[in-house]
Structures are given as structure tokens and as C-alpha cells.
Amino acid sequence: MKKIFIPLIVLAVAGCKDAKNNSVAEAVTSADTVVVVEQIEETEEADAYSSATSKPNEVLFNGTLVVPPEYQATVTMVMGGTVKSSKLLSGMAVKKGQLLVTLENPDFIDLQQNYLDSHAQLEYLEAEYNRQLALSKEQAASQKKLQQAKAEYLSMKSREQATAAQLQLLGVQPSVLLTGGIRPYLEVLSPIDGYVGNVRINAGKHIAAGEALCDVINKDRTMLRLVAYEKDLSNIHNGDTVEFTVNGIGAQVFRATLVSVGQQVDEASRSLEIYARVDAQEELFRPGMYVTARILHQEKK
């Protein structure tokens, strides 16, 4: 209002006679003085208001949502093969033991055959060893034949056990082969409940031994992984409450509890990682989402 008032006075001065210029100029000068004083007073009032309503600077921590190692799995196989079929899509929910991928590999068929052969020979060698043992007690057989029968039996037993262990690594129970026979395809099952991610396969693709097929992530135990700096360590303690917001979920505030503080500071950034367990899980949470958090320090008793 004052900036509009001054030009009006100046226009009035321009229209007046020379005789009145001095008096009007004095009026303008006086008005200018009043304006300046009032503006300074208003600025001081604004500064005082800002100072009264401002809050002390809070330390904010940036980080991401993560899941603990035991709630995520990378699906790999100790034996490779060619993908026969798969209906996997990223984001698909799966249960532990659910079929994920079917692979073809002639070596898998040979392994099953070796187990069945070993099992059959083991039955015969075990019977022969027991027979020689009985004859030896009656002194009707030589110790040499008994020792030979025992060596052959134990050798075949270890071979059967080794083959059975390889089948179990592939998710095949040897006892099932004895009743159901040889399986033509190698079935890859989900190791945990969760959601499929990072699908790296398609029909006809050859998968080498140890190569990742996909990931399975269980979001039931989502956590925060935050970056802290050494200067803030004195104010960070296990058990502290953490409030955080998540990119993409608006201004909603979530809570977590601090459970782990890193014990090694990075030499370059002078930072370390801290972890907090989320109190209430949210369906929209996704591992890797950015978060901004602040720590509510507990009062010492």
C-alpha cells in the first residue's frame, strides 16, 4: 500500500506550482521517512515470527528398503540344462516347493540310472557278504573270500550314497526313483515362499551349472538400510524408534525399530550402514525403494 501511495504524491507535486514545490517536497520526504520506518518494523516482525516458529535442525537419514538374507533366494542349479518349459513372470507369487522351471539334460538321466544300478548291485553284494560271514563263522569259507565280499559291498554302498546325495542336491528323493522310475526332466522348485524377480530364462535357453535362473523374495520382513555418518554415532542406539517416508507412497509416515548399527566406517565417505526392522508391513513396499528417515531418541532414565 505504501509503494502505491508515494507515486500519487509525486504526481500531485508535478501538477502544483513552483511556489509550492518546497512544501510538497517536504511532505514527500516526510512520507518516505514514514514508509521506510514502517517497512523496517514489518521486516523485524516477520523475522521475529520466523524465529519463534522454526524448529532445530533434524538429522535425516537416507536409505532403501531391503529384506533379510534368509527371506530372499537366488535360484541356481548344481547341474545345468536346457529350459524345457517355464511360466515365470516377474512379480508372480509362488509357494515353497512350487515348480518354477523344467530342464532337459541327458546327464540327469544317467545319474538316476547309476543310482538304480548301484542300489540293485548293493542288494546282491550285501547278501553275498552276509553269506560269506556266516560261512566264516562255521569255518566253511576262507577269510580271503570274506574280505573280498566285504570290500565290494562297502565300495558299492559308498557309491550308492554318493549318487543319492547328488540327486538330493537336485531336489530328487532317491526313494521316489525306486517306486516311480527314472524322470525325464529336471524340475526346479521354489526354495521359499515369496515373489519372483529377475527372471533370466526362456524356453530353449541353456542354463549352465551355477547360473541364476531367477530370484524369490519374501516381503514379510522388510527392513530399512540407512546410511549414517560417524559424527552421528553418539545419537544412534539399538532400540531407537525410526520414522520414515517412502518414495512413491506420498507423505504417509511409517515406523521402524533400530536393530543393528554397523561397526566399520567407510574410509572414503566416513559413513556406515544401520538397519531397522519395520513395525508394520505395507503391501506397497518393494525392496530397493528409497526412504527418508529420522531417529526418535529414547530419553535416558
Rank of each mutant, 00 (worst) to 15 (best):
residue 86 S to C: 05
residue 75 V to F: 06
residue 58 E to L: 14
residue 41 E to A: 12
residue 242 V to Y: 08
residue 275 Y to W: 10
residue 40 I to E: 15
residue 201 I to K: 01
residue 103 L to A: 07
residue 282 E to L: 06
residue 106 P to S: 03
residue 253 V to Y: 06
residue 23 S to G: 12
residue 216 V to E: 07
residue 195 Y to H: 05
residue 190 S to K: 02
residue 105 N to H: 06
residue 236 I to S: 08
residue 19 A to R: 15
residue 41 E to N: 09
residue 139 Q to V: 14
residue 109 I to Q: 04
residue 49 Y to D: 11
residue 228 A to S: 01
residue 289 M to F: 07
residue 70 E to F: 06
residue 264 Q to W: 05
residue 26 E to H: 08
residue 148 Q to V: 05
residue 257 T to D: 14
residue 271 S to D: 01
residue 157 K to P: 04
residue 19 A to W: 07
residue 195 Y to M: 08
residue 244 F to V: 09
residue 81 G to D: 09
residue 288 G to W: 04
residue 117 D to R: 01
residue 116 L to Y: 02
residue 19 A to P: 07
residue 294 R to T: 12
residue 250 G to S: 05
residue 20 K to G: 09
residue 58 E to M: 15
residue 171 G to S: 01
residue 145 K to N: 15
residue 95 K to S: 10
residue 24 V to C: 11
residue 290 Y to R: 08
residue 281 Q to I: 00
residue 43 T to S: 12
residue 287 P to E: 05
residue 48 A to Y: 08
residue 159 R to M: 08
residue 81 G to F: 05
residue 167 L to T: 00
residue 275 Y to V: 06
residue 52 A to W: 10
residue 108 F to Y: 15
residue 150 K to L: 11
residue 145 K to Y: 11
residue 74 T to Q: 14
residue 156 M to N: 00
residue 101 V to N: 04
residue 63 G to K: 00
residue 149 A to Y: 02
residue 175 S to K: 06
residue 25 A to F: 11
residue 197 G to T: 14
residue 159 R to V: 00
residue 127 A to W: 05
residue 26 E to F: 09
residue 130 N to E: 09
residue 180 G to L: 05
residue 231 K to L: 10
residue 17 K to M: 06
residue 180 G to E: 07
residue 202 N to K: 15
residue 228 A to P: 02
residue 206 H to T: 14
residue 199 V to F: 04
residue 165 A to H: 02
residue 285 F to E: 06
residue 298 Q to F: 04
residue 5 F to Y: 10
residue 285 F to D: 10
residue 301 K to P: 14
residue 62 N to V: 15
residue 244 F to K: 05
residue 107 D to W: 03
residue 89 L to C: 11
residue 292 T to K: 13
residue 248 G to W: 05
residue 134 A to K: 10
residue 206 H to I: 12
residue 160 E to F: 02
residue 74 T to R: 13
residue 253 V to R: 13
residue 39 Q to S: 09
residue 183 R to C: 04
residue 258 L to N: 00
residue 178 L to C: 01
residue 90 S to D: 13
residue 38 E to Y: 13
residue 28 V to A: 11
residue 228 A to N: 00
residue 280 A to I: 09
residue 233 L to Q: 08
residue 70 E to V: 09
residue 19 A to Y: 11
residue 146 L to S: 04
residue 38 E to F: 07
residue 13 V to R: 12
residue 132 Q to G: 02
residue 96 K to V: 12
residue 56 P to T: 15
residue 224 L to N: 08
residue 43 T to L: 15
residue 298 Q to D: 15
residue 230 E to L: 07
residue 6 I to N: 06
residue 251 A to R: 08
residue 37 V to K: 10
residue 78 V to D: 08
